[in-house]
Design a protein around this nucleic acid. Structure first.
Lengths: 159, 159
DNA sequence: ATAGTTGCAAAAGCTTTGCAGTATG
DNA sequence: CATACTGCAAAGCTTTTGCAACTAT
């Protein structure tokens, strides 16, 4: 079991991958799509649509919310972005190219998120495939907790 | 790792527990609340509000959707019902009194759900508490897959 | 030129809220 | 008899959809 950190990836690398995905599937290479990709890869958090949409407003490139949803779908499909449902309320997203498989420990109170990786989770899913008629595609482990800062009422911000 | 099954619990037992919870917290013992509790404990599936609401319509006791939500909250608070976010779309619920801690393997295509239990998951969360400043409250592991019936296009129904 | 995309607004779907009427303690 | 609860409808929120205008190819 070890704690993992967001990795910095070259924008050029993911841009190239996105371009290939768009070309291979007959999608258009619009400036809006690249602007969103760039913004996402400059972030290190688990953002939702609203956060991303507001940040895009401050960029030189104006992007509508419909386009944000559309582009997030494309990026999710080509594995450049991962979508999560931490609380069943809003969907959260994170960049995921070149990122090690990880799960999330979330402070219920303030949303602080810690990423971790543990081989035992994968082992469980492999074993599950043996015991059932299911073909396993993936998993999502969400651990809920309360961070020290919340317990002591200190000022802090989510990661 | 082993597959778990829903257990049959005596209605009288959970009714008594619910009564105690209501009394201890100054809530009223309304027939609607007991009708919902009974309906839930007669089921063995992972239902959503809509399913439960429709079933209540067929009972002699009419219950509004607001009351369904209200009662599910109460039942969740006193640990007679567990709430899940399998797909980030609708909340799913299941009875959980006397039920062993378990996680879910879900067929993405049709919703078929298999319950399983594995001590390794708990071990991971315990270890997490040691490596971080978090106090762990619980976890939810959702494994996604595709069942054999889906792969062979056979008629089948979710559990 | 022609179709995929964007932006805006409206619609959809789940959940919560407000309020008048009702029933519990 | 006081007030918590129910039912209904309206409102809130996130996400999806429809359509005219636009633009990548």
């Amino acid at each position: 079991m070890y704690i993992t950190k967001p990795t910095n990836v070259e924008i050029d690398e993911v841009t190239e991958l996105f371009t290939q995905y768009l070309e291979n599937n007959g999608y258009r290479k619009t400036p809006e799509r690249y602007a969103i990709l760039t913004e996402i890869y400059e972030r290190n958090d688990h953002f939702d649509v609203e956060i991303l949409f507001k940040h895009m407003k401050t960029c030189d490139m104006h992007v509508s919310k419909a386009t944000v949803y559309n582009t997030l779908d494309l990026l999710t499909q080509c594995n450049l972005v991962a979508k999560h449902n931490f609380d069943g309320h809003v969907a959260r997203y994170e960049k995921c190219h070149g990122v090690i498989n990880h799960d999330h420990l979330i402070c219920t109170e303030y949303g602080k998120t810690i990423e971790f990786s543990d081989n035992r989770i994968k082992s469980v899913t492999v074993e599950l495939a043996l015991h059932t008629d299911m073909e396993i595609h993936g998993h999502e482990l969400i651990v809920h907790g309360r961070c020290k800062d919340c317990r002591t009422n200190q000022a802090h911000s989510p990661i």
